[in-house]
Design a protein around this nucleic acid. Structure first.
Lengths: 217, 217
DNA sequence: ATGGATACTGTATTTTCATACAGTCCACGC
DNA sequence: GCGTGGACTGTATGAAAATACAGTATCCAT
């Protein structure tokens, strides 16, 4: 889908809202009234632009013939949601039944890529990337990573979240916190298991009331 | 819902099918064609009967103004979605129709309290609280706040996210970033509009690939 | 047997809508 | 400077759609 202008995005949002509230797409006149246009043509122009960019489909000669095209959020498609992975047992696959604590249903359009599981963040090592202990990291399974990506890796029995950097045969897992040391792995001598890449973050709980965080200490 | 005749049930089923296939309710003419009627009145009669029996709702003077009333789907009922508030117009209420950009369906158990809207974070002023620009802050409407809570407040035309601290008649809105200055408000001289308290945070997009963030600069 | 609901036909009228055409104004790239 | 896309105003027209009115026929209950 071609990128929309801010105004076009507003119009699209309005259409979505109408659809949700009245279960009917709006007419040109509805859009005109909602945005304070003084001509239906303004609404029509926006619809044509949205159609041209693939955001909607216009059914010719049909009243309210607007269909929002979504290639995501079939509301029932992600039926089960995404599993929250708790303590991962040594040697066990990260998505083993035993380690799944809960399931969360999440709107997919929240993330750039569909997450496969959620991981509860432990420790402050990614503090400066805005990833704090207790946060749920949305992870998409992946075996490889690109430089700069934040990944979930397995080091022996431990699961760790770090920024990935590779120079030839040497991978460095970089914390985002000067109090922690980078981890260096020579791929010719030991292997690194990448479990996935971070595609999002969720934080619950009342923000701001956490006890003594070492932030900006 | 009063019991429907077989014929009425057929018409209702047709409306449902149209809705599923074309995401648009049918017109009287559509129904006429589908059932082989030779008069639109036949279709209209059925619609009126269905409306009288509470199966549908007819929106007067609106093309395709048919809304199927369902009192089912309890599983999806608890998550209608939360609106994403975009640019808030000066003087307008924060949840004004015009400012809603999108809706997200979110699992409620993600948050300590049910959020009323999402706000896109701008700027780095809450960096050290792990709140970065582009993040979506989940906000629960509230007119007051307790010390230490992260709140959303209105200062003139601007919406700001800060940590709340009150000492008698003086409120301080504290950034979580030494590069920003606290805001001091004497409640006896000016008033402060609190829009809500932060109850969660959502971050989409590929983490770790953001360009030059002033983190740990 | 009579009134009422169901299930239609047929015609007419008006409103709602989509759509086309002719413009204006502005920002942006070349 | 010139074209192009975006964001509109204003007017007009015809098709699409809702709605009203006047019927016919069947069944069912009182």
């Amino acid at each position: 889908m071609e990128t929309l202008t801010p105004r076009q995005a507003e119009v699209l949002a309005f259409i979505r809202r109408q659809l949700a509230e009245h279960s009917l797409p709006p007419t040109r006149a509805d859009i005109m009234a909602a945005f304070g246009f003084r001509s239906v043509t303004a609404a029509d122009d926006h619809l044509k632009a949205l159609a041209r960019k693939g955001a909607i489909e216009l059914l010719p000669n049909a009243s309210r013939g607007i269909r929002v095209l979504e290639r995501d959020d079939a509301p029932a498609a992600n039926e089960d949601g995404v599993p929250l992975v708790g303590r991962v047992a040594a040697g066990a696959p990260i998505l083993a039944q035993e380690s799944i604590e809960d399931w969360y249903r999440l709107d997919r359009k929240l993330f750039s890529a569909a997450p496969d599981f959620l991981l509860r963040v432990q420790g402050w090592s990614m503090r400066d990337a805005g990833i704090l202990p207790g946060d749920l990291l949305a992870v998409q399974r992946a075996a490889s990573a690109r430089d700069g990506e934040i990944i979930v890796a397995r080091l022996g029995d431990e699961v760790t979240v770090k920024r990935f950097e590779r120079r030839g045969n040497v991978v460095r897992l970089l914390p985002a916190n000067p109090d922690f040391a980078p981890i260096r792995i020579d791929l010719s001598r030991q292997d690194l298991v990448i479990e996935g890449r971070a595609v999002g973050l969720l934080r619950g709980g009342p923000l701001g009331l956490q006890a003594g965080s070492p932030v900006a200490a």
